[in-house]
Design a protein around this nucleic acid. Structure first.
Length: 626
DNA sequence: CTAGGGTTAG
């Protein structure tokens, strides 16, 4: 509306049909530099900045075409191809790509208007930058491809390759490549790199590899040999495809070929290792950068410090942080938060608090993530008074608390057995309008279950389902554990089956809870059967047998432990010697040294008896009659 | 108007 008023007034002024000699300043000032008006006429064939600015306002308004039509009509001008190309080249004048498309379309609809190559390229540039819009770009390129009268120049071809590569429009990229040849444009090193990037971005890693091989073989034209960017692009591609070994091989190979890895090479690798939890690899790559004198980008510090924090090595992280600061690299809220979280997680409240103060002194405002981390760690440590103090501090000081705070606190109160407080916080959260997510439900259900209030746990579980809140493997694990503790074995087993039926993949932890529950109720055959069913689902609990035997021994059910051990050996699931060691360790740990020693000095598990004429392994159950 | 990498809490 405002735009319409401004432009109507401007049109009147500019076309001389207004009684106003000059437009009121407040109409125009926010949009254009008034001093421009004095020096330009709207009939000027060269697009002046203010004319472009008005045009951009028009095309970004809600009804661009009629506005544009009246604008052009009032000026008695026709948009010329060079004017449109110039307008499209000014991204600051066209902040919305949709507006650029509108102008492009409007111009094309003018009688006898033909877009220049520059217009296509400028528009594609806009569509490939933030936020990229591959679908729109594809339509524009399709029109470009139809235009066989357009001749690609080296600069235009290069620009086109870059847009198409970053948009991942591979077919269009290959068309450009062919068209370049037709127009006699020799691909440069940059062209090759763009081609590789385009292939990599759309998942054609093998094709990118072939391009790189052509470059290496020297069949790619004069002086075109892979450089550090070629290798970086290839490495990015391998990592994207999960082929980390090939990435590592290229990384080693490039140095051998005289191409030194640079900061982007290292960043690409560090980023990938970070995402996969390979924090040790991040650190060694960082050290390599130091040794080789490669410039360390601020983000590399961020990732390596965060990695050390996640590895529970806050002191090492702190040392690197100091080094970073010495080098003049400014920290940020995320790094401070990671450090505070890490110190708080290892229980070093003093260091955490010191960093919080340093952070403020450094000019950073701790945010809800920072305080959220603090509240979580204090809750995990059972320091509920302090956790609540910080929580109240946030509420009083304009820090937006969220369901994560509530979840941490509910979990903390639950762990120290303060069920009423946990329940109270859950209701407070709801009253304040937060919709509890699965984390919050899990925390409260766990609280109830641990306190033996299984019916309350169950009703929350059902409410969760009713309200469509995502029930995860954690939810089921908590419930199954709680049900076994109340000896509701059948219900627990039913819940396990329901979880499987819902397509929720069990975790080793969830099977641990189930198997322990089943074993303690004497149903280890059932546990073994379920264990067998896990493998096809891709779940392999590492120490399942050991866990089961351990828990049976601990509960003093030696007979059952022996039966289970025999079962495992009879079915050939473990090497007998290993099961023997498991039994010995389990008995020892359960404080039953006497039986453990007896087992050590016997032939049980590894020796054989002759019963009748059949040779039979000495059963673990014979341990009980020794 | 031609290339490559980017974070913190349950």
């Amino acid at each position: 509306m405002l735009i319409n008023r401004i432009h109507r007034s401007l049109l009147h002024y500019l076309t001389g049909s207004s009684h106003l000699r000059t437009p009121p300043r407040e109409w125009i000032e926010p949009y254009i530099d008034i001093s421009d008006l004095a020096h330009h006429s709207p009939r000027d064939p060269q697009p002046s900045p203010w004319l472009l600015r008005i045009l951009s306002l028009l095309v970004s308004s809600s009804t661009p075409e009629p506005d544009l039509r009246s604008f052009c009509g009032s000026f008695l001008i026709r948009l010329s191809p060079c004017f449109v190309a110039a307008a499209l080249r000014h991204p600051s004048l066209l902040p919305h790509p949709a507006a650029a498309v509108a102008l492009f379309r409007f111009a094309a609809a003018q009688p006898s208007f033909v877009h220049s190559l520059d217009s296509y390229i400028s528009l594609l540039h806009l569509l490939s930058s933030s936020p990229p819009s591959a679908a729109n770009a594809r339509l524009i390129v399709a029109e470009l491809i139809e235009r066989d009268d357009l001749i690609l120049t080296p600069a235009a071809a290069g620009s086109l390759l870059r847009c198409l590569a970053s948009l991942g429009l591979v077919e269009e990229l290959l068309w450009t490549w062919r068209r370049m040849k037709e127009c006699g444009v020799e691909p440069s090193l940059t062209s090759y790199n763009c081609l590789m990037d385009g292939l990599v971005n759309s998942g054609f890693v093998d094709s990118a590899e072939k391009v790189l091989e052509v470059m290496e073989s020297g069949n790619s034209g004069d002086g075109v040999r892979p450089d550090v960017i070629s290798y970086n692009t290839m490495i990015k591609g391998y990592l994207k495809a999960g082929r980390n070994d090939k990435a590592a091989a290229r990384f080693r190979e490039m140095s051998a070929k005289g191409v030194d890895p640079d900061k982007v090479t290292y960043m690409t690798l560090i980023q990938c290792h970070y995402a996969e939890g390979g924090f040790y690899d991040c650190l060694s790559l960082y050290h390599e950068m130091e040794e080789k004198g490669v410039e360390v980008p601020p983000h590399a510090y961020s990732l390596v410090i965060s990695g050390l924090c996640k590895e529970s090595r806050p002191f090492d992280a702190r040392m690197l942080f100091d080094k970073m600061s010495e080098r003049g690299c400014r920290a940020n809220v995320a790094i401070y938060t990671a450090l505070i979280d890490s110190f708080a997680k290892i229980g070093d409240e003093e260091q955490a608090m010191r960093l919080l103060q340093e952070m403020k002194d450094d000019g950073f405002k701790p945010d809800e993530v920072t305080y959220g981390a603090l509240v979580n760690c204090l809750s995990k440590a059972g320091k509920m008074d302090k956790a609540m103090e910080w929580f109240e501090f946030c509420k009083a000081n304009g820090i937006v608390v969220n369901s994560i705070f509530y979840c941490s606190l509910i979990d903390g109160f639950g762990k120290v057995g303060m069920v009423d407080e946990a329940e109270g916080l859950f209701s407070e959260m709801e009253v304040k309008g937060f919709v509890p997510d699965s984390y919050c439900y899990n925390a409260l259900i766990d609280t109830f279950a641990k306190a033996g209030r299984i019916d309350d746990a169950r009703s929350m579980f059902e409410r969760m389902e009713r309200e469509g809140c995502d029930q995860t493997v954690y939810t089921y694990t908590i419930m199954i554990d709680g049900l076994f503790k109340k000896h509701k074995n059948e219900d627990a087993l039913k819940l396990w089956c329901r979880m499987i039926d819902k397509g929720i993949t069990p975790t080793p932890a969830s099977f641990r809870v189930l198997s322990i529950g089943l074993c303690l109720s004497g149903k280890f055959n059932r546990a073994m059967k379920i264990l067998d069913e896990l493998a096809p689902m891709g779940v392999v609990p590492e120490n399942a047998h050991e866990d089961m035997i351990k828990v049976l021994c601990k509960a003093g059910r030696i007979e059952h432990a022996c039966k289970l051990a025999d079962e495992i050996v009879d079915k050939g699931r473990e090497i007998p010697a290993k099961v023997r060691t498991m039994m010995i360790n389990a008995l020892r740990k359960a404080g039953n040294a006497e039986l453990a020693i007896r087992l050590v000095h016997s032939k049980i598990g590894i020796g054989y008896d002759r019963v009748g004429s059949i040779k039979r392994r000495v059963k673990f159950v014979t341990l009980l009659s020794l």
